[in-house]
Write a protein that binds this DNA or RNA. Structure first.
Length: 173
DNA sequence: GCAGTGATCATA
DNA sequence: ATGATCACTGCC
């Protein structure tokens, strides 16, 4: 059973969507090539008050996709060489998103965008067959006890927000 | 452990 | 206009 996740899935609060994405499949189709892999690591970024979120200083040219509707793709470039993939969640106008940090066979957020050919072309597009990037439920059951919660990676600057357990990892079994 | 790499944004 | 910063990676 394969079900493409739609707007209702992503319209929920980011702290629900982020753990729920574990065990789902990221699918990329460009041309006649298709790659997919199970999501194993995510992080939540939750609004302007979240000092680790790109929206911490309000809307800017870069973070504008965060304010779009749920299911919008937010891809940004960092460290002069890496692309990061995020999926916007929650109410339109509320800047929150899930960072896809790892897949079953690709650990590392910049490695997975490289392998899946994800870059600025996908920024601001919507998840789905039209953009060529979407997420499927393939029936993998993830038990709550298989999800490990930890602080987010690389957000030391975020004060108290750096401590929060907004990172979700699927423990291998 | 740390260099590489360049867009972005706050500050001025 | 400028400089610090950066949701990272790969090689030392």
């Amino acid at each position: 059973m394969k079900k493409v996740l739609g707007i209702p899935f992503f319209s929920r609060p980011v702290l629900q969507v982020a753990p729920d994405l574990l065990g789902k499949f990221l699918v990329r189709r460009s041309g006649r090539h298709e790659v997919f892999s199970m999501i194993t690591e995510t992080e939540a970024y939750d609004g302007e008050r979240d000092l680790a979120c790109h929206a911490r200083n309000g809307k800017t040219l870069r973070n504008e996709p965060l304010y779009e509707r749920a299911g919008t793709i937010y891809v940004y470039f960092t460290y002069g060489m890496h692309w990061m993939l995020n999926v916007v969640t929650g109410e339109k106008g509320y800047p929150a998103a899930v960072l896809i940090r790892g897949l079953e066979d690709v650990t590392g957020p910049a490695r997975l965008t490289k392998k899946f050919d994800i870059d600025k072309r996908l920024n601001k597009k919507k998840l789905g067959k039209i953009s060529g990037l979407w997420i499927e439920d393939r029936g993998v059951v993830v038990k709550k006890c298989d999800i490990k919660k930890t602080p987010r990676i690389g957000v030391h600057y975020a004060g108290i927000w750096a401590q929060k357990s907004y990172r979700f990892v699927l423990s291998r079994k």
